[in-house]
Amino acid sequence: MTTFREVVEAWIASKEHCAGSLGRIQFWVDQFGHLPITEVSEDDVDRALEVLVSRGKLKPGRNGRPATSTGEPLAGSTVNRFISTLAGIFKYARRVRALPRSHTPPTRGIEKAPEPVDPDKYFRPEEVDDLIKIARVVDQKWRKMPALIILGFHTGLRVGNLLNLKWQDIDLEARTASVAVTKNGRPHIAPLTDRCMEELSRLRRGHPNELVFASYRNDGPFNYRTLWGKVCKEAGYEGRTFHWLRHGCGSALATAGVSQAQIMQVMGHRTLVASARYMHSNVNDRQAVVGRVFK
């Protein structure tokens, strides 16, 4: 059976690999070289990515010495290049029939590592409060925008998942919202806070199969964009997208000292690298605390 290492050696010999990718290729060979190419799983890739992130940047060794860790984290773009390199290996393996055409590569569905959240590209709690106050006045027809905003900020769910929630997905007793399939292809259960429950209680609860955020014109999801844009404009946040609420959720959790693993669970990320984008908030908050104490 063809091993991962054998496929990589053939790929390098074919000259199809990208220039400058040998270091990334070697990392994957170190992880999977001994395995048959058909047996490398999504879980194997997830574990390898955790190793990669934990390792961080490397300082090249001299005089035959191995490279050593600098202690600095890898940039999200660098992690993405590692993922792309691995995807290229499996693409080559399918082309030369080392894998069947029907084979699904273990890189399929893996979230790319994002860059750190721009400090001007996420909503802060006080800004969300502004949005809620304005939405209560501006939203006179649909009257569900405050609930949509609170659930977006407190659960971190993507707007598409929120708009497709049905009343049967809301468990009032367990205080949860269940999403059957998220962006990464997996189900997710989001806990609902007191404010989420309060906003949901303001809505008319429909048939279990009805959408929570249905349009007032039909039974389909509400086209929120125009109303959202109006609320943001009135609040002085023109141009911001609803997705900033999701980033705000992750940043608020990190600032409060929530661990990266817990943020990963709340946000529904598959890998630690995805939640790493919010950890700058945690670090900055701790730096501020230390600065106040040790002046």
Rank of each mutant, 00 (worst) to 15 (best):
S84D: 13
A87G: 14
G88S: 15
K91N: 11
Y92D: 09
V96A: 00
R97T: 05
A98R: 10
A98D: 10
P100E: 14
R101W: 07
R101Y: 02
R101Q: 13
H103G: 08
P105Q: 06
P106D: 05
T107S: 04
R108E: 11
R108T: 15
G109W: 08
I110Q: 07
I110Y: 03
E111Y: 05
E111A: 08
K112A: 01
P114I: 08
E115M: 06
E115A: 13
P116I: 09
P116F: 08
V117Q: 03
P119D: 14
D120I: 02
K121P: 02
Y122K: 09
P125I: 15
E126A: 12
E126K: 15
E127T: 12
L131I: 13
K133L: 15
I134F: 04
A135G: 11
V138S: 06
D139G: 09
Q140Y: 12
Q140T: 15
K141Y: 15
K141F: 12
R143W: 02
P146E: 10
P146A: 00
L148E: 09
I150L: 02
G152N: 11
F153I: 13
H154N: 14
T155M: 08
V159K: 05
V159Y: 02
V159D: 05
G160V: 07
G160R: 07
N161E: 14
L163K: 08
L163A: 00
K166E: 10
W167F: 06
Q168I: 07
Q168E: 12
D169C: 00
D169G: 01
I170E: 04
I170K: 06
D171E: 03
L172S: 09
E173D: 10
R175Q: 12
S178M: 01
V179R: 01
V179N: 01
V179D: 02
T182E: 01
T182Y: 04
G185T: 10
G185Y: 10
P187E: 04
P191E: 07
T193M: 00
C196G: 02
M197E: 13
L200G: 04
S201D: 15
S201E: 14
S201P: 09
R202S: 11
R204P: 08
R205L: 11
H207M: 04
H207I: 06
